[in-house]
Nucleic acid binder design. Structure first.
Lengths: 211, 211
DNA sequence: TGTACATCAGTGAACGCGCGTTCACTGATGTAC
DNA sequence: TGTACATCAGTGAACGCGCGTTCACTGATGTAC
């Protein structure tokens, strides 16, 4: 984009993008302020004009991650057609697929540093994560309405579904799953079956699929 | 125990114990070889006679974590009485309870460093994690036998259950769950309901609890 | 039983590295008049 | 329209720290004879 200028123009966003690129290419340990600044083409002191410290950048990166996750889930929902249960399933599957496609970024989103107790210092991150979760809650609500079965609060069922797909993704990425031998199905396949299991468990469907 | 000796006697295990103590008290960032050695009462170079590097110690700490997790699940199973479904539920709930009681140690067990692709360099860790997972698989098998319902492979249902409780635990510990507002039930309560949801979804039980 | 000696498990000091962060600075930009 | 000046967003060098790890060493232990 254009020739190099002294004033970058939108360095804040460029730093976030650079950080995500570093994550995807080199992984979390390589995510240092120095690398990010260099990647964005500025000196290592420049980020301090846009972020108070490294954690602030990490928070922004995590927030961006929740937004792209939300978009992935919404897109999958859209693609799933008119059936509310199919939409719900697609949402869960998209969660897993997205996590596996962006492992390092996904880990940053759930970094212990950012959970940090109740008083979250990053309102942007808070909002972004709530929006992502909101996609799931809405999908559950619509499925309940479509099927006429409402055995539990949407929030709680959504949280159950979130736990399921989040657990599958994290176990797949960082768990000892790879040590159990080669006969385990693909993650996408498991995501499919597990979201279906949740739907049955939530009382939104009672049929068992053909064996 | 006893007076200080030049030769420690069982420094290897003492270092693992010290590392776990550091984790519980100060959290993961404080887990440096120097702190661990100091806590065990030896110089910072001493650990290198028992572990090739820091990762090797971490691997041993993680393995120990899987063993205590396994023990927690087995103990809960024991306490649950004779009903196979109650035992299965107790196993899942114990997973969550244990994780929340030992957050930093739990995180180390699922550290990306230790997942590290297929060629796990720590056979002890591999074995310990498989044993912990085995408790769940066995519980599923017994529940299938007891109820006479076998809609899916025990391995796969156990993995679904593992995903569910693991997801709940990690979301609770590191997720943005605390930002959703104060109306969320306790983790133990959620663990209860979610394992029940899994049991229903797995076809091991069809009744819905009273609202 | 006593002694020489190889082996092992510690010590303490140091190395080198990369990190987050700070500092005085300088070039660019926008605005008041 | 031109110019003085405050403000902002960069630079480049440096600081200080804590870390993992290495090294030559020393004290304790076990064993052969």
């Amino acid at each position: 984009m254009g020739k190099a200028k002294y004033h970058h123009g939108n360095l804040r966003q460029a730093l976030i993008d650079a950080a995500i690129e570093v994550l995807e290419e080199k992984g979390a340990p390589a995510l240092t302020l120095r690398h990010v600044a260099r990647r964005a083409g500025v000196s290592q002191a420049a980020p301090y004009h846009h972020f108070s410290d490294k954690d602030a950048l990490l928070g922004a990166v995590a927030a961006e991650g929740f937004r792209t996750l939300r978009d992935s889930m919404r897109a999958a929902e859209e693609r799933a057609g008119g059936n509310a249960l199919a939409k719900l399933k697609a949402t869960g599957k998209a969660y897993v697929t997205h996590a596996l496609a962006h492992p390092a970024h996904f880990r940053v989103m759930f970094s212990p540093l950012l959970a940090a107790g109740t008083g979250s210092p990053y309102p942007d991150l808070r909002e972004a994560s709530l929006e992502a979760f909101g996609v799931l809650v809405s999908a559950v609500e619509r499925a309940q309405k479509a099927t006429g079965r409402k055995n539990a609060a949407p929030f709680e069922l959504a949280l159950a579904g979130w736990s399921m797909v989040h657990g599958l993704a994290t176990l797949w990425l960082d768990g000892p799953l790879h040590t159990v031998g080669g006969k385990v199905p693909s993650a996408a396949e498991l995501a499919d079956r597990f979201t279906e299991l949740c739907i049955r468990g939530a009382g939104l469907s009672v049929r068992w699929p053909k064996p």
